[in-house]
Simulated scan of single mutants.
Amino acid sequence: MSAALYNSLFILLIILPKGFSQLVRTQQVVTATLGEDAVLNCELMKTKDVRQVTWQKLTTGPNENVATYSKRGPNVNPPFKGKVEFEDEGLQNCSIIIRGVSRGDESCYKCLFNTFPDGPISGTTCLQVNELYGPSLLITQTNNSHTTLSCSATGRPAPIVTWDDMMIEHSTTVDVTHPNGTITVTTTATVAVASLTDKEVSIQSLSSSDKRRMQPAQEAVKR
């Protein structure tokens, strides 16, 4: 996420009237893997006369109005129709869901409660989009007792490659950063053939719950 967006968030917190930042409950950072849905929650912690709730996407230029909710009902602005929906509709609790997140959705989002007579009260949450591709597994039979396994995965942030319950005698890891910001992690290990039965290789995104597993390594060796 760009430094400019975080600076905008910092400035926003400074200019809020004292005590107002605690009136809105949001999640500071929401993480979602590319293609997943992301829910951004926003709740006003003290009952007030709210006339309208506005969701905005923070940009380096003017903020983009994403959606609004008022007594007349919900309204999603045309550029976000089909992409953004309301998860919770209300003047005290108003949450949106972003469908199939992409890199372009990564930003900070502000929910703004327009109240009377206090004026606007807002909270901000930032969406971080993770990417995860793979893994791919290369197996080389070195001798009757040992096998060399090489597992690669690509993601943003860098994925974690784990060898599950294997007798690893030697292991090396190489990271390669690509121009688009993704990182390929390749881990090569020498393991005992006897430890391959019904074992798996898994990868996990550093800051995501997304986890993927390879097929049992013994089956791959037989092929």
Score class of each variant (00 low, 15 high):
Val174His: 13
Gln27Met: 02
Pro62Ser: 10
Leu112Tyr: 00
Val201Phe: 07
Ile160Gly: 02
Pro157Ile: 09
Ile139Ser: 02
Gly181Val: 09
Ala189Pro: 09
Lys57Thr: 04
Thr59Val: 07
His146Arg: 15
Met167Ser: 13
Ala158Leu: 08
Met214Ile: 10
Asn75Asp: 09
Ser195Ile: 02
Tyr69Val: 13
Thr182His: 06
Val50Pro: 10
Val161Asn: 01
Ser202Pro: 05
Phe80Cys: 04
Ala32Phe: 01
Cys42Pro: 07
Gln56Met: 09
Val161Arg: 01
Val29Ser: 04
Trp55Cys: 07
Gln141Asp: 15
Pro216Ile: 10
Gly119Gln: 11
Gln27Glu: 12
Leu5Tyr: 03
Thr31Met: 08
Asp105Pro: 08
Gly82Cys: 05
Val201Arg: 00
Leu138Val: 14
Glu131Asp: 11
Ala38Asp: 04
Thr187Gln: 15
Tyr133Ala: 14
Gln128Phe: 14
Asn144Cys: 13
Asp165Thr: 06
Val221Lys: 00
Thr47Ile: 14
Tyr133Ser: 15
Asn41Tyr: 10
Asn63Pro: 10
Pro117Trp: 05
Lys211Val: 15
Lys222Thr: 10
Leu127Ala: 11
Val53Leu: 06
Ile139Leu: 10
Thr54Gly: 01
Glu200His: 13
Glu43Ala: 08
Lys222Cys: 05
Pro159Tyr: 01
Pro17Asn: 12
Thr162Cys: 10
